[in-house]
Amino acid sequence: MAADITLAAPIGTASQPSSFAEFWASFRENKGAVAGLVVLSLIVFVAIFADVLAPHSPLEQFRDAVKLPPAWYEGGNWAFPLGTDALGRDMLSRIMHGARYSLFIGLSVMAVSIVCGVALGLLAAFAGGWIDSAISRVMDLIVAIPSLVLAILIIAILQNPSLEKTIAAVTIVSLPRYVRLVRASALSEMGKDYVIAAKVAGVGSLRLMLRTVLPNCLAPVIVQAALGVSDAILEAAALGFLGLGAQPPTPEWGAMVGDGREFIRSEPWIVTLPGLAILVTVISINLFGDGLRDALDPKLKRS
């Protein structure tokens, strides 16, 4: 993130030497955002080092320790701190590995939709005419179909749900907001003097697009991207829950909640813990994203 921000700054704010320091000063005032960043870093750390940190393999089935409750309950065992699921797999290890899938989905969706969104948004803004109309109408259409329903339809078309298809479906669903955002801010930038000056100076249109206009459209996109990650994670988890996302035995959190559904009465931890992991992750990303917005885009600041 930090690298993007410093990259984004040079054009408009070349005279201000360290816009990152300025950003950080404003960001750290927001206690919620800092808390979100801390928790999020922790989750990222766990996801990266899941292989080392997790006490067991997420797939290993301990046949003599099936449906063990978390250790602090009666009958629990500290060998399995958060208990085991219906097949005797260690819940803690599965949740730790699950962080990888959720973050991977969130980040891939974000990366692909930023690239496609920026490309389509800039194209729409610069080309105008029928290209603009076509792109805008397709985005209207994607927005008109409820996102989960559209994602389900895409999975149905692609057949045989998997992690990659989940990413594809969620990316398509989340594309419009980036396209619209980039298009709108590019259009508003294009009327400004510095762009006209660049045009008069004879800057080529590709250079104009990417070097002159784009950096000045990035702040809202970065903010949107941070908040978009949390939506992508929720959407993907919902697909996993419905059995249309990552397939068993993948320890994806949404799928874990879905698989554990039948044990809700007798062994509730199989359902509650992975869901709690989703909630905590999404909250921390949202807190971080809100802080990012307040720091980067004071105009949008929530009072």
């Binding site: 949390s230 929720l234 988890a237 919902a238 829950f241 419905l242 949404g254 909640v257 879905g258 559904r261 809700i264 009465r265 509730p268 359902v271 509650t272 992975p274 869901g275 989703i278 909630l279 999404v282 909250i283 949202n286 807190l287």
Partner: peptide, 17 residues
């Protein structure tokens, strides 16, 4: 914040529970 970060399928199961 908690509300709009909620995976509602899980929230539903919690309430049922």
């Amino acid at each position: 914040l908690t509300g709009y970060s909620m995976p509602i399928f899980w929230w539903g199961l919690l309430l049922v529970m």
